[in-house]
Every structure is written in structure tokens, then in C-alpha cells.
Design a protein around this nucleic acid. Structure first.
Lengths: 346, 346
DNA sequence: TAACAACGGGAATGCGCTTTCCCAGTGGCT
DNA sequence: AGCCACTGGGAAAGCGCATTCCCGTTGTTA
């Protein structure tokens, strides 16, 4: 990485480095037209590309935004990533990407790496876990984030506050009303169905999943329906598939009224649907099914999924912009319930 | 971003900055245990986080990898991104992300930004366009990449070489055998179907699309089938949908033997399928359909898509690793044809 | 015991840039 | 004519770190 330097450009143009710097990057002072032209010509002939590291060191501003996701290939996260990337580009920032599989220890490492790079803000997406075994790592993550904020960093949090973070200075949360939407969703579905109800949830302690489970139960209660039984599985497509296999067996062994299955997210719902299909069961004929998130790439799936629509890209944008502006206080996105064929609607 | 500095840590520990540097980053020389302990304690108490910019400046190595994709939310690119991210993490690098919508001008800008940041390598994914209006921008992109390579950068290219790049030094291409796979795919499908055949292609000049179209035509010829007619549309889900609407109209207006539709990629195929369905046509009953890529998130789609399976994540890994090692010469991935229900198989 | 190698620590330099400060020249004003 | 404000350019001081020398100690060997 041995590109030519400002000093070389300056020498070739016959000016001082200070002058070269002033013309090549719009400083407050603008050198005369003739000189500027000479410098620009020299820069072009040498193929000069300013060293952003050196500039960052000199100006103490990097133009970097760190993004932390569980898995960039997961459509939930990649949709958010697009929003983050859009906002970053709009504000002339570059995004640094880190993936962590949701492991608090990895997230801590990612925050440290971003802090070392002096990223101006960090956007952290992905559900936090309150599970016991993660407790220690969560505390360390929170400490790392707090340190980052004390040093002037700003962090954008998607979903719910980071477990263990008490300070609010520097944090900008985009609140996703998981519980409220889940409640509305379950209420709407509950009005049309008698049950029994089943929730395919993620691991206990995963905040997003827990919030949605709680909301669903309340929504069912609102509609005067019995509480749902809960099946837990990993928070992804394959987790949904496992749960779906189990549910299919249950349906075969204990035939009864058509069950209604709420999956904690769309991706799990797709897994459930695949498992039911593999077991000769059809949605919505043999079981109603609802998801959560309304992932864009899954909208062509049939039967179309009843779900809670979240403006994921917008969420990413808001989280990013919130850290760049001085917006005080959390932003709350709306979201809405979308009824489709998988629960018999449409 | 005013974190504490090495000098502060050194002062607090009562040692020189040189010593502090040596203990905090494994240098060749390791200070004595007692001193090391003091330094580490001082660093911890100050919450010291080394400034990666300064380190980069001093060592002239940044540990950064730039990734250029059309759209991070597109599952094709996000799968590749996962591979890149994996490889980067394995090699202790961070990835910088840029999205460009495939616009050569934006890609040039992204390369320049990565060069400024002194990224050690750049991975560029996404089809190049040979279309006339992009010609000038393509030349500039190639020039920017060449300059980057001359300065010691290494670039990993996914798919086909960048248009206009003549040098090979610094470039590491992961060749995707689009034409061969398309030919195999069309040959296999052609054996079971009489036609007529239709190709839903991307815009003319998009290299990946053109390669696949050519391969399909040759595969049909291999099987002794007539050439396919070509419908062009934007290279995404909605483009596929548009084309699907047109094709559905054609089928309605000119009923005849069941047509076979090859989409230039899976995402377009999904769009085609949605359009056919909206028009009361069913796959594979009223039309056979094949895609390309075998996107993971689309595998639960029904009818399951006949397609060419590409190890996208592996492709991302190889492109990244290729730039980091001194692997000479291009890597070629295999890929395979996967026959499923959408063409009547399975 | 003398000479020397090995070791462990610090001073100083430089990475490539921005920016303050300084200085000479110019024009406007009384 | 004399003074001053201003302009446009350069010298130099960092930004935070790694690293090369250099030097005083200690341990080793003949």
C-alpha cells in the first residue's frame, strides 16, 4: 500500500504541503486558482489518493459507522443493513460490518474493534439474550459499550435496549413494539379461530422472542381464547422446521380442531410450513400459521404469511441517523398487522 | 472520540511509551513480567483502546477488506457477503461495505474510498455490464482498480473479470461457470420437454445474464431443441414479475404446448412464478420454470425450483482468501444442476 | 578477572496529514 | 505619505502509535 503522498504532490507542484492540503480537500482557505490548478494536475499525474488513516489521525474523525448483526445472510438483518448502508452513504460515512451469531462475547469484541477504529457510531441489531449463561458476557458487552460512549461514541440500538446498560447518554434506541404488535396480531387471528394455539418461540431469554410470546398470549386473552402452548427451538428457519416436525407429530397423534401456530418470526414460520408440508399437512387447511417481520423475500411464499409488518429498512435508517443527529430520546416505529392466506384471510 | 492514549497509560504505569506499546501489542520484545503487569493495569484502569488509525499509519497495514455489492439485501449478495465476512474474521480482518446498485460510477467511487482507507484488498461482486452507456464509467472503474493494484492492493473478483481490466497482477478471480452450468441445466431440462422455450433475461450487456443466456441456448441445441425466445427485464424479482405478466398474456392469447421458462436467476424466477400464479397459471402444470443460483432462502418455495446450484458463501470465501494468500491464478468453482418440481422433476 | 554477549528499558524519529501561527506583500483609508 | 487590515503562502507542531537505535545491567566464558 505504497501510494504517493501529499508531500510528493506538493513537491511536484512546487508548493508547500500545507497548500496542497488546502486545495485537495476543501479547507476554509482556498489557494489561488493558478496554484490550485498546478496542485490538482500534480495529484492527478501521480494518482494521488489521500490516506484516510492519516486524515483521521489529524482531524480525529473517521467517517466510519460500525454495524453489528447476527448474520448478514439472514434476510431480517440484511434488510436492516440496507437501511444502515443507505443512511451512511447519504451522510458520507462508510460502514464497517461485524457478524456475531448473537454471541455477547463476539459482540463485545466487535464493539472493541469498532472503538479501536474510532467509528463515530455503532449500530447494534439483533435480539439480546437474558439467558443465564450469557449474563457475564452481557455485562462485559454493556461495559464495553458504556466505555465507548464515554469516549464520545454514539450507539444506535435496534429493538430493545442492551441488557445491562443503564446510562442513556450516547444511546439512541429504535423501539420495535414487539409486544404490542404481537398482541394485535394474536387478537386479530384469535377472533377468527377457536384454537388450540401453539407458539413456536426462540430460546427462553431471547428478548425479542419473549416479548412476542408475551404479546401473543395477551392478544389471545383479549380475544377470550385459551393460552397457547409454547414450543421452543433455535431462532431460525431450521429451528422452525424442528418445531414443525414436533407439531406435525402432535397433530397426527392427537387429531382435533385445527391448531393455530404463531411463529416468533417469519423465517421460523417458513420452517414450520416446510415441516408440516413434509408431513402431509397443509396450511391453512390443517393448521393456521402466522409469522412476524414480513420479510420481503418471503412475500411470494404460498400460502402468503399472516404476519406483523416491520419496516426493517427504515429501522436501520433511523437507528443510524439517530446516532448521527443529536436526536434525543428513542424513536418508535409503528408496524402493522398484515392478514393473509396462511390464517385463512385474503 | 477522545479516548486515552498510549502515552497516558505509559505515564500512569511509570514507563516509557515504547515499553507500553511493547506490552500492549505483542511485539517481538516482551518487557518483564512486573512491568507488563503494571502497564496492563494502567491500561485497564484508563479504559485504554489502541487507536487503530495511528497503528495503521505507523505500521502501514490496516487489516481492512472492502466489499462491493449491488445490494446487501439481495439474498445472492448477502450469501456472498457472509462468505467474505467469515473469511475476513478468520484472518482477523474487518470488512468495509459498499453498495452500488451495479452502477459503475458508484463502484469506482467505492474503490476510491477503499483505496483512501488503504484497504488491503477489495472484493467486488456483482455482474459487470458491457452496455454502451456504461462504457465510459467502466473504463474509469478499471482505471481506478488498476491504480489500486499498482499501489499494492489486491482485488478479488466474483464471477467474471472486470470489463476493461487488462493486467492480471493483483487480481484474483473466482470464476463462476455460468455458461457451462446453464448449458447443462438447459440440456437436462430440454431432454424432458419439447418446448417452446423462453428465457427471462436481464438487460442486454449484463455479463452474467448474457453468459447464462448463451449457455441455455447451447444446451437446448445440444438436446436438439429449438432456440428459446428472449424476454428482457430488470435483473431482480420485479423484473421477473414483469416478464411473467407478459408471458402469461402470451400463453392466454396463444394457447399451445406447455412452455418452459428459464429465468436468469432464482429471484427473477420467483417473480415469474408470482406473475403466472396471479394470472391463474400453475407451475409446472401450465409452464415449467427454472432458475439459477439456488438461493438458500428460496428453497422452501413451492414448487421447488429447478436451478443451478452455486456455493455462494464459498465463492465469497474464496474471493477473499485468494486476495489474502498469494494464490496465483483464478479459482474455479464447480456448481451443479439441481432438478426439482418446477420442471416436473422430483 | 577481564572482555563480551545478551537483555531490558528509554529517547527519538517518522508514518501522512491538518492546522495554527507567522510573515511578506497588497490595497484601502485618513 | 503613512498606517492598518487583509490576503495568500509557508514553516512547524502535533495527531497516536511502532520501531530503530542507543545505553546501562547483568550474566557468561576463557
Amino acid at each position: 500500500m505504497a501510494a504517493s503522498t501529499l508531500a510528493e504532490v506538493a513537491k511536484l507542484a512546487g508548493v508547500s504541503p500545507a497548500t496542497a492540503s488546502r486545495v485537495l480537500n476543501g479547507s476554509a482557505r482556498t489557494p489561488g486558482a493558478g496554484i490550485a490548478e498546478r496542485v490538482r494536475a500534480a495529484a492527478a499525474s501521480l494518482g494521488y489518493v489521500a490516506n484516510a488513516q492519516a486524515q483521521a489521525l489529524a482531524t480525529s474523525s473517521t467517517g466510519l459507522i460500525g454495524l453489528i448483526v447476527h448474520d448478514i445472510a439472514d434476510p431480517y438483518f440484511s434488510a436492516i443493513a440496507r437501511g444502515v448502508q443507505d443512511a451512511a452513504r447519504e451522510r458520507r460515512r462508510m460502514v464497517l460490518l461485524a457478524t456475531t451469531d448473537g454471541t455477547p462475547a463476539d459482540e463485545k469484541a466487535a464493539v472493541a474493534a469498532f472503538a479501536a477504529r474510532r467509528a463515530e457510531s455503532i449500530v447494534i441489531a439483533g435480539s439480546r439474550s437474558t439467558h443465564g449463561e450469557d449474563a457475564a458476557a452481557n455485562i462485559e458487552l454493556a461495559a464495553e459499550l458504556d466505555r465507548y460512549c464515554r469516549n464520545g461514541g454514539r450507539v444506535g440500538v435496534v429493538g430493545q435496549p442492551v441488557v445491562g446498560v443503564t446510562e442513556t447518554a450516547g444511546y439512541h434506541t429504535v423501539v420495535v413494539p414487539n409486544e404490542r404488535l404481537a398482541r394485535e396480531l394474536a387478537g386479530a387471528v384469535g377472533r377468527d379461530h377457536e384454537g388450540p394455539f401453539i407458539i413456536v418461540a426462540g430460546p427462553q431469554g431471547l428478548v425479542t422472542s419473549d416479548d412476542r410470546v408475551r404479546g401473543i398470549q395477551r392478544g389471545l386473552a383479549d380475544a377470550g381464547r385459551p393460552a397457547a402452548t409454547i414450543v421452543r427451538a433455535p431462532f431460525g428457519r431450521n429451528g422452525g422446521f424442528e418445531a414443525g416436525v414436533e407439531i406435525a407429530r402432535g397433530i397426527r397423534e392427537n387429531p382435533g380442531p385445527r391448531p393455530v401456530i404463531f411463529a416468533a418470526n417469519d423465517v421460523m414460520a417458513i420452517g414450520v410450513a416446510a415441516a408440516l408440508r413434509d408431513n402431509g399437512l397443509r396450511v391453512p387447511r390443517d393448521a393456521a400459521l402466522a409469522g412476524f417481520d414480513d420479510i420481503e423475500w418471503l412475500r411470494d411464499f404460498r400460502p402468503a404469511l399472516t404476519t406483523a409488518t416491520l419496516p426493517l429498512e427504515e429501522i436501520g435508517r433511523l437507528a443510524t441517523l439517530g446516532t448521527l443527529n443529536d436526536d434525543a430520546g428513542p424513536a418508535t416505529i409503528a408496524g402493522s398487522v398484515t392478514m393473509r392466506r396462511s390464517t385463512g384471510a385474503g
